[in-house]
Amino acid sequence: MIDDTTATIENEDTQKDKYLTFHLAGEDYGIEIRYVIEIIGIQKITDVPDMPSFIRGVINLRGKVIPVMDVRARFGLDARDYDDRTCIIVVNVDTTEVGLVVDEVSEVADIPESQVEPAPRTNKDIDGSYIQGMGKIGKQVKILLDVHRLLFSGQEMQALADSLEDM
């Protein structure tokens, strides 16, 4: 028990300020590393009817069935054919596992809190509510995403959640 807690604390420590950065439509994004479980190549996605357009379907991750969200579609960006650089980042938020389809995964970057600016309010392409902040590494800027909101906020997701409660 005791060992476990210390391990988590250490983990939290080592994971602090670390972001997994990826490429999407010419921009660099980052998500907190603690949400990321693994990164897999694109694989066969099974369609599920009656879903919002950005939910591409479900995949089989070693026996587990997890839904896949296309982040391009989520941001309302133009669709692009998947290629061999396309990746699925599997994240776990509040025990819900979801795969995120991104153009290309780059690296794990250290962005201390001092280097994170609050999100600008005037981005017309991307709904500002998904953005947690803007991280600076030298001259580069990474858009840091709030994974929780990415997964659960928005009208469509609200509708899904409602349908769940009705059950």
């Binding site: 599920v48 939910i55 479900v58 089989n60 069935v65 839904p67 819900t96 899904l160």
Partner: peptide, 22 residues
């Protein structure tokens, strides 16, 4: 199906086939 997706009309669940597909 994942809780994230919820209740899908016309679908009661899913399974994994021999080729690994859902």
């Amino acid at each position: 199906l994942s809780d994230f997706i919820g209740n899908v009309p016309g679908v009661s669940g899913c399974t994994i086939l021999g080729d690994g597909g859902v």
